[in-house]
Design a protein around this nucleic acid. Structure first.
Length: 492
RNA sequence: GGCCCCAUAGUCUAGCGGUUAGGACGUUGCCCUCUCACGGCAGUAACACGGGUUCGAAUCCCGUUGGGGCUGCCA
């Protein structure tokens, strides 16, 4: 199969959400798998609700996920004359007709049919208007004339279900092609564009299956080649209901802000509905290599943040500390100081990366390092009941820190020598560990009994990376300062 | 209501007529251990129900139930 072309066609009436991102991803990797093209079309014919902000959000989010179009972006709002020429043709060929029914009248018809237990459809009032009844100066829409008749059906083979889905034509309304304001509707514009853009495979959400027969009729009426269709099931919230704001973060950008990595989101999204044996971890290249519509699940999937978090922590762990510093600086608040690429920061980042699930959490765990003042919490006093022995220990510990050779902390190599930096850190921490163990055994103390007070003194927290790594990251001066402060804190 | 789609553990899924129903997240226990993680090991938990077809069904067919979508001059 060659010359595959897929598209993602969002309407800028909302942020790019998880579901949209997944269909975009499916479309993108499907095209790439076959060496084809992926394109983007902005369906901005709803002037009421479309905004430039949403459009920018969608573009930024797709870019962040590395889903890039191969051609210039197409805007439906700039193609109005094209749609007009095609509707004129349908009108001339008697495949479409003017309708002057008011919205109120249609609403009446619909509610009456509904109350009779019938399907609320257009009753065809304007189907056979005489020429003198057509006054185009009056408000009107243009409707498609659906062919009806004994057992006439319209269907298509869905590539994901791998079966035909067909609809009785009698079920299909004479849907509106062009609105009162002259703007084409979705079902009309989408067909013109997909045909003209030579889209071969339409991969979209499940919510479009019932639009498909309408579109297929249009392809037929216009003499266009009918593309392949693949309808991906929806993503639902934890409660099994359609994903919405009440399920928390649903926009891609929100996940970015909360410190998720794009590779984690891509990996999560691709596995939500698609599988390749028992594999779980996929890079974009691997996804493209293995992706196939046949392996997409037919059933709806529930969005599960736990698994996304697991993947995110996996990708955080696999990054080197230098990259993580950049990532943290990318998402930092403007009021926060950026992290510096120095050896202390690198060492702490490296130690912390296996202890966090998001970048936001990462930043949080860095607080004791970033902030100069710790502000020990009063509750620690009652919880730990420090005594004279502890005060004595702190004094001794302070002396110990002071005695550590400066060479342990001072890196002389180049800052671009990543391996050198990592090795230096590793050796330094090992040295601190040995010195500290000597210090303990000299005094007949054990690690277990002294670790917590050091941790509290140096970080103000009950939980932290290992002591030696903290000592290295903080350095002698800051350690001594904190031990002194903590001494005063518990001595009050 | 009508039409369409779907159905393996709490969640994502493998399976494509014969398996002790596999993996992953979560969860539980143990190990590691200076706390917390990471890592390692072990455990937990599923074929919605009822009929067929077949020597044999999670797998094929039909119902039932449940869920989702659509039913707009939104996309």
């Amino acid at each position: 199969m060659n010359n595959i072309k897929t598209r993602f066609a969002p309407s800028p009436t909302g942020y790019l959400h998880i579901g949209g991102a997944r269909t975009a991803l499916f479309s993108y990797v499907y095209a790439k798998h076959f060496g084809g093209k992926f394109v983007l079309r902005i369906e901005d014919t709803d002037f009421e609700r479309s905004t430039k902000e949403f459009e920018a959000d969608i573009m930024d989010s797709l870019k962040w996920l590395s889903i890039m179009p191969d051609e210039d972006i197409v805007y439906q709002s700039q193609r109005l004359d094209i749609y007009k020429s095609y509707v004129d043709r349908l009108l001339k060929e008697g495949k479409a007709y003017y309708c002057f029914c008011s919205k109120e009248l249609l609403e009446e018809d619909r509610s009456r049919l509904a109350s009779e237990g019938k399907k609320p459809m257009y009753v065809g009032r304007c189907l056979n208007l005489k020429p003198d009844e057509i006054d185009l100066s009056k408000p009107h829409v243009i409707r498609f004339k659906v062919e009806r008749g004994q057992g006439l059906t319209t269907g298509f083979k869905d590539l994901i279900r791998n079966q035909f889905v067909s609809f009785n034509n009698n079920e299909i309304d004479d849907f509106v092609l062009v609105r009162e304001d002259g703007i084409p509707t979705y079902n009309f514009a989408v067909v013109i564009d997909d045909a003209l853009m030579e889209i071969t495979h339409i991969i979209r959400g499940d919510d479009h299956v019932s639009n498909t027969p309408k579109q297929i009729m249009l392809y037929g009426a216009l003499g266009f080649k009918i593309p392949e269709f693949a309808h991906v099931s929806m993503i639902l919230g934890q409660d099994g209901k359609r994903l919405s704001k009440r399920h928390g973060a649903t926009s891609v950008n929100q996940y970015k802000k909360e410190g998720f990595l794009p590779e984690a989101l891509v990996n999560y999204l691709i596995r939500l509905g698609w599988s390749h044996g028992n594999d779980e971890i996929f890079s974009m290249d691997e996804i493209i290599r293995y992706f196939d519509l046949k392996n997409i699940s037919k059933s709806a999937a529930i969005f599960n943040i736990e698994k996304l978090l697991w993947l995110n922590s996996h990708y955080i762990k696999s990054k080197d500390p230098f990259d993580i510093i950049n990532l943290l600086n990318d998402i930092k608040a403007s009021s926060e100081k950026p992290l510096i690429n120095d050896i202390q920061t690198v060492s702490l980042i490296d130690s912390l990366k296996s202890r966090v699930k998001t970048l936001a959490e990462f930043r949080q765990k860095l607080n004791f390092f970033i902030n100069e003042e710790l502000g020990y919490k009063a509750e620690l006093l009652s919880e730990f009941n420090f005594n004279e022995g502890d005060l004595f220990f702190l004094q001794e510990f302070k002396t110990f820190i002071g005695s550590l050779p400066d060479t342990i902390f001072n890196y002389k190599g180049g800052l671009n020598d990543k391996t050198g930096i990592i090795n230096f850190i590793k050796n330094s921490i090992e040295s601190i560990k040995q010195e500290f163990n000597n210090f303990l055994s000299r005094n007949n103390w054990t690690m277990k009994e002294k670790a917590m007070i050091i941790r509290l003194a140096l970080t103000g927290e009950r939980v932290s990376p290992p002591i030696f790594e903290i000592i290295f990251a903080l350095g002698k001066i800051r350690c001594i300062k904190r031990v002194t402060e903590f001494y005063e804190f518990i001595n009050l």
